[in-house]
Amino acid sequence: MNVKKLISIVAVAGIVIASILGTFVYFKAFTANTQFAQDEVFVYVPTDATYGQVKEILSPLVKDVDKFDFVATSRNYDTNVKSGKFLLKKNMTSFDIVRSLRLNVPVKVAFNNQETLGKLVQRLATQLEPDSLKLEVAFTNSPFLEENGLTEETALALFIPNTYEFYWNTPAEKIAQKLAKEYHVFWNNDRLAKAKEKGLTPIQVYTLASIVHKETAKVDERPTVAGVYLNRLQQDMPLQADPTVIFAIKKRSGDFDQEIKRVFYNDLRIQSPYNTYINKGLPPGPIAMPDVSAIDAVLNADNHDYIYFCANPDKPGYHVFASSYEAHQVNAKKYADWVSKLGINR
């Protein structure tokens, strides 16, 4: 056999082998390898997860784990696992899957109307990797509170209801730092100036806003309600806010899930620093997480001479306001009679 013929045979054999190898690689890497019906699914890879754990997570979603394994090892993913939230699409190839497992998808985190810090961390823990205990520790450790001028009683004031963007696997400490940064952005020069004009700190504004928020769900009425409470503070009157009594009852029992529709006379005597019937001034901290409209209602409160208000039976959800105790008594009796007819009890 001459040399030219040998070279030809080797070349042909090489082409055949390359073709077979190419077909093998194509089959392994570039054919559809998912088995879920949805158009998209998200995969969550925990912090410090091993490659073996990733394969377990993917096993219900991938048709052929061996095909995925072939591509993952050839692209060094098996030794460089990334944690986070990742998007997989229907009919992705193994190559696509490995590439997607390197693209951490941000999470839109939303919270509002949380009544306590405990409720807030539970809410956040359903959206992010850190559990509620890690989050609570991050939000209440002494250096963090001191750095932001907070105490355990006022810690909730740090959190401004909104939608924020995080990576799912963001550590609890970094979540706390980012939310603290957003807090300081929210309290811009304009809001700080308005708070100072009313003789209040941002935390005091937030605390009063939490009462206003609980008093009325009607955004257009909140500046009027806020004005009433500011008038009482200026006249050194007790705030006498029913929502603070309800909070005191819940705090004493430890049950913040109970629903209290009506405050009775005996409730007004509950011994608690949060009871604004027996204590003048603001309570030690927020009684809930107010939304931004309630915070701005305090900062932009109506200027009036109202001192009293009670629910308006003729306009559900709203209140009637009075400048004198005598006028308030007339309004209060009308409301009490209406409630009694409805048979509302706690």
Rank of each mutant, 00 (worst) to 15 (best):
D242S: 04
P238M: 05
Q122V: 11
A301M: 11
D236C: 10
I344C: 05
I246P: 00
I17K: 06
Q235R: 15
S272V: 04
A327V: 10
I20S: 03
V228H: 00
G14E: 03
G199Q: 12
H213Y: 15
M237K: 02
A11N: 04
T23W: 15
Q204I: 08
V228E: 00
F24T: 14
L299D: 02
P290I: 14
P273Q: 11
Y277F: 12
V62S: 01
N162Q: 13
K5D: 07
K333Y: 06
T79S: 14
I160P: 00
P161Y: 00
L61Y: 04
A241F: 01
D242I: 02
N303K: 15
L120T: 01
R232S: 00
Q235Y: 08
V71N: 03
L58I: 03
M1Q: 13
D296L: 15
K280D: 06
D296V: 14
Q240V: 03
I278S: 10
L200C: 09
E326K: 15
A180L: 08
E115V: 06
V339C: 04
K108P: 10
V320E: 15
I211C: 11
A125Q: 10
T93C: 03
D64H: 06
Q271W: 05
C310G: 12
N91D: 15
V219T: 13
L117Y: 02
D305I: 14
Q258D: 09
L179W: 08
I211F: 10
L87F: 07
